[in-house]
């Protein structure tokens, strides 16, 4: 929990770091210079081997004076991008989790409470989505959505916006949550206090709000850390495949991708965001275990 707060806090402080050092994490800076230990050094350094052609970005300087983790192949400060990228990664994961939970709860409630034809239809649709491999679904959605602007009537998603990965990740995990929610609603539907409420002739919306939702909360809360962890990993994977967050925006996944070409010369670029992901997801998984033990000791959640 502490670790999570710390990570979130650090990413919120991103503008402070970038502003203080005067580095722009989104614009390429091939001619930039930086002062290290009293010496002014080019950010992109001429190769000293062979013919002296080609440039390599500077490596980690480990001094808190800019380019702490070195620069990427556009001459941008990796540490600053890491913090800004963390913001995006965490934002996307949180928003996707909210979308997923809301959709899944609505579907679960409708299917479980109304039953009959509604349940049949929704369950079959969930079956299909469930069998569809997550990454393939995400890839098909992204490739189509990335190339075009979608007008959904209520709101428009422009190509390359952050809303895109949020929307995709939010949707692909719906079946994983909706199925257990539906099962829980179904048992609640036939529990005595709900039958009593129905017998009293209370309106449906009141039963749903006052009797069913509160009892559904434990089932939903258990999924929060798990979904967050899944969403962070999925986001980074999509960005790594260049179908998630679009440049010049950063996320942990895009930085790993940027770092791939520099892997052997400047490994810090790819290593740092990966370590950030591992720390965050690990903390979420530990939290998830704790929450599950507290709320649902016998639950089997994959």
């Amino acid at each position: 929990m502490l670790v999570l707060l710390l990570v979130a806090l650090l990413t919120l402080l991103a503008p402070l770091y970038a502003g203080y050092l005067g580095v722009d994490p989104f614009r390429s800076n091939l001619r930039g210079k930086v002062e290290i230990a009293g010496e002014v050094v080019q950010v992109m350094q001429q190769s000293t081997e062979g013919l002296g052609l080609g440039v390599t970005p500077i490596g980690p300087t480990w001094n808190p004076g800019g380019y702490m983790l070195g620069a990427d192949n556009q001459g941008r400060d990796v540490a600053a991008r890491l913090l800004y990228g963390g913001r995006n990664s965490l934002f996307i994961a949180s928003a996707a989790t909210v979308i997923c939970l809301v959709l899944a709860t609505l579907i679960g409630l409708a299917a479980g409470f109304l039953g009959g034809v509604v349940d049949m239809a929704l369950s079959r649709i969930l079956d299909v989505l469930w069998a569809f491999p997550v990454y393939l679904l995400a890839i098909s959605l992204s490739i189509v959505l990335l190339t075009s602007t979608i007008d959904l009537g209520l709101f428009t998603i422009t190509a390359g916006s952050l809303a895109l990965p949020v929307f995709i990740i939010g949707i692909i995990y719906v079946p994983y949550v909706a199925r257990p929610v539906r099962a829980r609603v179904l048992t609640l539907r036939h529990s005595e206090f709900v039958l009593a409420a129905v017998g009293l002739g209370l309106p449906t919306h009141r039963i749903l709000r006052r009797d069913i939702l509160p009892n559904l909360m434990p089932t939903i809360i258990v999924f929060v850390p798990i979904l967050l962890a899944l969403a962070i990993v999925t986001e980074s994977a999509l960005s790594y495949l260049s179908i998630g967050v679009q440049p010049p925006d950063a996320s942990w996944g895009t930085i790993i991708q940027d770092g791939q070409t520099l892997l052997y010369s400047r490994p810090a670029v790819a290593l740092a965001p990966g370590i950030a992901i591992v720390i965050t997801v690990l903390a979420l998984n530990v939290l998830g275990d704790a929450v599950r033990d507290a709320l649902d000791p016998r639950g089997q959640v994959r």
């Binding site: 994977a237 790819a270 990966g274 992901i277």
Partner: peptide, 23 residues
Amino acid sequence: SLIGISMPVFWLGEVMNLMSQSR
């Protein structure tokens, strides 16, 4: 095993490459 679950597979792959191909 928790750490294993928390690592993005493509990143682990890059670390493996870094070690076995370069460093």
